[in-house]
Simulated assay, not measured.
Amino acid sequence: MPAQRQWVSQSVAIIEADFNRSADTHLIPLDLAGFAGIDVYFKDESSHPTGSLKHRLARSLFLYALCNGKLRQGAPVIEASSGSTAVSEAYFARLLGLPFIAVMPATTSQAKIAQITFYGGQCHLVDDPKAIYSESARLAREQGGYFMDQFTFAERATDWRANNNIAESIFQQMSRERYPIPTWIVASPGTGGTLATIGRYVRYQRHDSQVLAVDPEHSVFYQNYLTGDAQLTLARGSGIEGIGRPQVEASFVPQVLDAMLKVPDAWSLAAMHYLAQRLGRRVGASSGTNLLGVLLAAEQMHAAGQQGSIVTLLCDSGERYASTYYDDAWLAAQGYDLPALIVQIAATAEQGAALPAPVVEHFSRAGAQG
């Protein structure tokens, strides 16, 4: 067997052995007293070895690149990432003995940068969030490496039909609950790959579950869903790390979504703090974004007289954001005043009060499907 082919075979075996040592992530119930007969679950992706949902993506991307002949022994791997994907890819690069370079916005939290370097990765910071793609491609060319390009390959690197993807895992774990087929599955797009996997899987399995994507304030995905315009751009990046993009990514597949909601960042952060209080531990801001989608879905079900279940994702741990989203001085400096918003979110979750207008005014079921 040629040396390169033998190295690929050994590398795949290393990644598969790492997967075999890993348990699945927990499905955590969250009682919403305001919505009797509606059961809510958070799939805790923060329990992966690298602490986030992106561990699944990184594993799939490395296997995809290896089996497509893109990685070479000793050659660097470069990724454009706002943090969590880079942390996970640094982990897998270290498993294979490959150099890893993360190209990230300069605003990425120091905690994430520290985690990347912990796994042996290098951090290449850029001022313009939209420049991470071109800069990654340049580094790959100049250093003879490979640009992993999560935003292009996320939707195709994962086998959406099965192979223990996140959607299959959700339905297996729900099988003994009183409402085993979720009425709604809620997630927020970073690359869009997870939503693509879930949307395709429910169609392939012929489940009745609907898929709701929740987009943060500074992101183009919601508008792309409404208009189908793939050329949309924003001048700034998302204020919620890990989700939302300033341009439409190839892995975002609006046709597999049943609805979308766009929410202001302040409400995502307030929902994050409320969820952390309920769970007794810090969670990331994207989990707060997801909670707002859950509350809207619960409102819709309640108004229709439906009972059933809703599943969403707890994307990462809030410990990564101790110096930002959980720091009162940082929040004040950014102009966020959250206590009153937290009270309103609690009223919806615990008493069934209507969600405030700023949360629900950008909601659509039509999108690119219509």
Rank of each mutant, 00 (worst) to 15 (best):
M1H: 10
A3G: 02
A13T: 09
I15P: 04
F19L: 11
R21A: 10
A23Q: 13
T25V: 14
I28F: 07
I28D: 10
I28P: 04
P29L: 07
L30W: 14
L30Y: 15
L32R: 04
D39M: 09
K43F: 06
D44A: 14
S46T: 02
T50V: 08
K54A: 10
H55I: 05
R56Y: 09
R56N: 04
L57A: 15
S60C: 08
A65G: 07
N68F: 05
N68H: 13
N68S: 12
G74S: 06
G74Q: 12
A75D: 07
A80R: 05
G83K: 01
T85M: 07
S88E: 13
Y91T: 01
R94F: 00
P99N: 03
M104N: 06
A106C: 05
Q115E: 15
G121W: 06
Q122P: 02
H124G: 00
D127C: 03
P129W: 08
E135T: 15
S136Y: 08
R138C: 08
L139I: 15
A140G: 00
E142V: 11
Y146R: 11
Y146C: 13
D149S: 15
Q150F: 14
R156F: 13
A157L: 07
T158L: 10
A162R: 13
N163P: 01
N164C: 06
A167M: 04
E168Y: 03
S169W: 02
S169Q: 11
R176W: 11
E177V: 03
E177Q: 14
Y179L: 03
P180G: 00
I181K: 12
G190R: 10
G193F: 14
G193Q: 06
L195W: 07
L195P: 05
T197W: 02
I198Y: 06
Y201A: 02
V202G: 02
D208T: 11
Q210A: 11
V211C: 03
P216T: 06
P216C: 04
H218D: 15
F221W: 07
Q223L: 01
D229M: 05
L232Y: 11
T233Q: 12
I243N: 01
S251E: 11
V256D: 01
L257G: 13
A259N: 04
A259C: 12
Y274G: 06
A276N: 06
R281H: 14
R282M: 14
R282Q: 14
G284N: 06
S287Y: 07
L292C: 11
V294E: 04
Q300K: 14
A304Q: 10
Q306N: 00
A322D: 04
D327G: 06
W330N: 14
L331S: 15
A332H: 09
G335N: 00
D337C: 09
L341V: 05
V343E: 10
T348L: 03
E350S: 08
E350I: 00
G352T: 09
A353G: 03
P356E: 08
E361G: 00
H362G: 00
F363M: 01
A366S: 04
G367Y: 03
A368E: 11
